[in-house]
Design a protein around this nucleic acid. Sequence first.
DNA 1: AAAACTTGTCGAAGCGGTTCGATAAAGGCG
DNA 2: CGCCTTTATCGAACCGCTTCGACAAGTTTT
Lengths: 340, 340
Amino acid sequence: MAATIKDLARESGVSPSTVSYVLNNGPRPVSRRTREKVLAIAKKLNYQPNAVARGLSRRKMDTIGIIYTYLDADNTDYYFISILHGILGACMRHSQAATLFTSHAWEDVPANMPLYCNGRCDGLIVVAPPAYSGFVQEFSAREMPVVVINEIYPDPKVASVDIDNELAMYEMTQYLLSLGHRRIALFCGDANQSSAVLRERGFRKAFAEAKLPEELFQIVPGSYRPASGYQNALKVVKQPEQQRPTALCCASDAIAAGAMQALIECGISVPDQMSVTGIDDVPIALTTAAPLTSIRQPFTEIGMHAAEFLLARIAGDATVRQELLPATLVVRKSSAPPCR
Amino acid sequence: MAATIKDLARESGVSPSTVSYVLNNGPRPVSRRTREKVLAIAKKLNYQPNAVARGLSRRKMDTIGIIYTYLDADNTDYYFISILHGILGACMRHSQAATLFTSHAWEDVPANMPLYCNGRCDGLIVVAPPAYSGFVQEFSAREMPVVVINEIYPDPKVASVDIDNELAMYEMTQYLLSLGHRRIALFCGDANQSSAVLRERGFRKAFAEAKLPEELFQIVPGSYRPASGYQNALKVVKQPEQQRPTALCCASDAIAAGAMQALIECGISVPDQMSVTGIDDVPIALTTAAPLTSIRQPFTEIGMHAAEFLLARIAGDATVRQELLPATLVVRKSSAPPCR
DNA sequence: AAAACTTGTCGAAGCGGTTCGATAAAGGCG
DNA sequence: CGCCTTTATCGAACCGCTTCGACAAGTTTT
C-alpha cells in the first residue's frame, strides 16, 4: 500500500501536521532540520500525497471538467481534438487534471447537472453547445465557474471564447466578390449553432455593403457535415447554367469537402467552373481535390484561452472575460475568378 | 452551499449513517418509512453526494485515466477521438468518469507516474505508446490496473486491445498482388510503434508466400504523417519507369493522403498510373482525389473493449485479456490493376 | 419461555489529508 | 532580567461520506 502522511510522521518522529507543513511549504514555518529529515523519508518511501484526501480537505480537486457531445466523427474530430489540446496544454502548465464528460445529445446535459457539480471538478468548459443553452446559467446558480467555447454568451456574466464568426464570413464573402463573383451560394451550418447564424449574417452584410441585389445570392440551409455539402451541391448543380452560382461559400471545411466531392462527380472542375471555400482550415482542407481556400480558426488558442480564463476564475479572479480571437483568410487553389 | 449528508440527517431526524444506508440501498436494511422520508428530504434539498468524500471513504473514485500524447493533429485527430468516443461510451454506461492525461512526449510519462497513481483514478488506459514501453509494467507494480491500446503487450499480464496488424497488411498486400501488381512500395509508419513493425511483417509475408523475389518490393521507412507519404512519394516518382512500383501500399491513410497529393502534383493519375492504399479508414480516405482503398479499424470498438476490460478488472475480475479485433478491407477507387 | 436470529437504528471510527488553537522554546528589546 | 514577539511543533477538529460494532425491539426456533 502507498505510504500516507502518518507513515512519514512516524518514520521521521514528528507529527502529521508538521509533515504537511513541510510538504506544502507552509502555512507554518518548519525548521531546516525537520524539513530535510521529512523530505528524505518521503523520498525513501516514494511518497505521493493522495489527491482525493487533499481535495476533500481543501475543497479543490485541481481538476476542470469538459462538457461536449460526440455529434459526429466526420464533423468534430479535428475541431474538438485541437481545442482539447489547447485546454490540456494549459491544464498541464498549471498542474491541473481534466475530466471529460460526454453524452449523445445536448438535451441529456441538464439531467447530468449533479454529475458535473459533485465536487469532482472546480470548474467547467462547455464546448460548442447549441446557441445560448439555458443550462449554462444553471452552473452559475450552483456557483460553478464556467467558460463557453464557440459562442459569446449573451449574458455578460458567462465567460466565453470564440472567433468573430460574422467578421470571418464577411471577409470571405468580400474576397469572393473581389474576385468578381456575383452569384454566390452560402451553404449554412446547423441553424441551432450561433456560429452558423453569425456566419450567415456576415455573408448578408458583405452583399448589402456591396449594394448587390438579393437575387444574386442563395442561402442554402444545412448542417456542418460533409453530407450536407454534398447534397446541397447536387441541388445547386441542377440549376440552369445562367442562374447557377459561380462560387459555393461553405460555412465549414467539412461542408466544402462534401460539396467538392459532388462537383467532381458531376464533372464540374474546381476552381475553373466553380469556386469553393470553407471555414475552419482543418486538415481536410489540404486533402480535397483542390486545396481549400478557408479561414483559419485558432483552435488550440481557443482551448488554451478558455482554460486560462477558467483557472483564473477558480483561483479567485472575479473578472468574466468574453474574448474574440482573430481568424485569418488562407487562400488556396479552390477559388479563382469566375470564367463567365 | 451544497447540502451534506448531515443536513439530510438533521432534517429527517435520523443519523447520518442511516441516511447513507438509504442513499446506497444498503449495506444495512432501512424501514420503508425512514427510506421515504429521507428520499423526500434529499429531493427537497436537491442533494447530490460529494464524489470526493465518497471516493476517499471507499478508496474508489469511479474514474479511469487515459494516457496519451498529442503527437500531431494531422495524425491523431480522428484516430484518437474515435477511440476516446468508445472509451467514454463505456464509461457513461457504467457511470464512470474519465480523466485525460497528456504530455508532449512519451518520455515524459515515467516522470508523471505519481500523478497517475495518486488516488484520482481507479485504473488507466494507455493509448498507443511506443512499442512495449517499460513504464507500463510499473503500473502493475503499483497495483494499478492498466489496459494498453494499439499493441498487444508481450507480457501476458498486461491487458491490451488492437487489430491484427500483421494480418491486415498481409491481406492488403495479397489484394494488390491479386490485382496483378508485382512492383509494390511499402510506405512504413513510425518504426517505434509496434503496429508499423507488424504491418511490415505482414507485407513481407504476403510476398514470401507468393514466392516473389525481394527485388520487386521496396520498403520505405517513414512516419505515420502525411508529410512522410508526400516526401516518399516524390522520391519514388523519380525512379526510372521500368523500376518504379505500380502501387504504393501505405501503412496509414494519412501517409496515403500525403502520397496522393504528391502524385497529383507530379501529374501521375491514381489509380490509372499508380494504385495507392491506406490503413485505418478514417474520414480523410473519402476526401482524397481518388477515394482510398483502405482497411477499416474498428476504433470505437477498440476503445469500448479497452474500457470494458479495465472496468471489469477494477471490479475485481482477475482475468487479463489480450484481444485482437477484426479489421476489414474496404475497396474504393484508388486501386486498380496496373496498366503496364 | 428461554435462546437465537432478524431488522432497524445509532454512535463512533476511519479514509488521508489540512489547518486552527495551544504551547514551549528561542530571540529581541528596553 | 523580565516582557513580548517570533519560531517550531503538536494535538485535535474537520472535510463528507462509509461502515463496523453495539443494541433495542420484534420474530423465530426449540
